[in-house]
């Protein structure tokens, strides 16, 4: 089975490192990290991710800006994006661990690996169908 390619765009280096390690340890994903939001589109174009995990609050371009650029890009517009944000709380998440707000699928920090994985799978399944 081909591993799914996940791109994480988040300026927090320790967080992205640990998410990458955990996701890759599941054996299901190939993960690339981009800590500078300004490089997100270029990195994504080169990496061709199946899904992007995108932080919302970042210096320079924020998650919303990056997402808009993805949607304007013919190669990236259909790539599912999950926003990971500190502005929401886990108490506000739905049963599946995410919530749809302002046009984005959002998950709250800190997120448990299990929930993150099921959100990713849900989004990937949505693309597949």
């Amino acid at each position: 089975m081909n591993k799914k390619r996940i791109l994480i765009v988040d300026d927090d280096i320790p967080l992205t490192q640990s998410v990458k390690i955990n996701l890759e340890e599941t054996g299901d994903y190939n993960v690339l990290v981009e800590n500078r939001s300004a490089n997100a589109v270029a990195t994504a174009r080169a990496f061709r991710p199946d899904l992007v995990l995108l932080d919302y609050i970042m210096p320079g371009l924020d998650g919303g800006d990056v997402c808009t650029r993805f949607r304007d890009d013919p190669f990236l517009r259909d790539v599912p994006v999950i926003m990971i944000t500190a502005l929401l709380s886990n108490g506000e998440m739905g049963a599946n661990g995410s919530v749809f707000r302002n046009g984005h699928i959002m998950v709250a920090k800190p997120i448990k690996l299990q929930k993150l994985k099921s959100c990713i799978e849900e989004q990937l399944a949505g693309v597949a169908t």
Partner: peptide
């Protein structure tokens, strides 16, 4: 709150991932 949320939730996220890593 909003400032603290962002500043504290990222480290919490790291800790969460650490716990998840070692839980296996």
């Amino acid at each position: 709150a909003a400032g603290v949320a962002h500043e504290v939730k990222n480290p919490l996220g790291v800790l969460q991932m650490g716990v998840d890593y070692f839980s296996n």
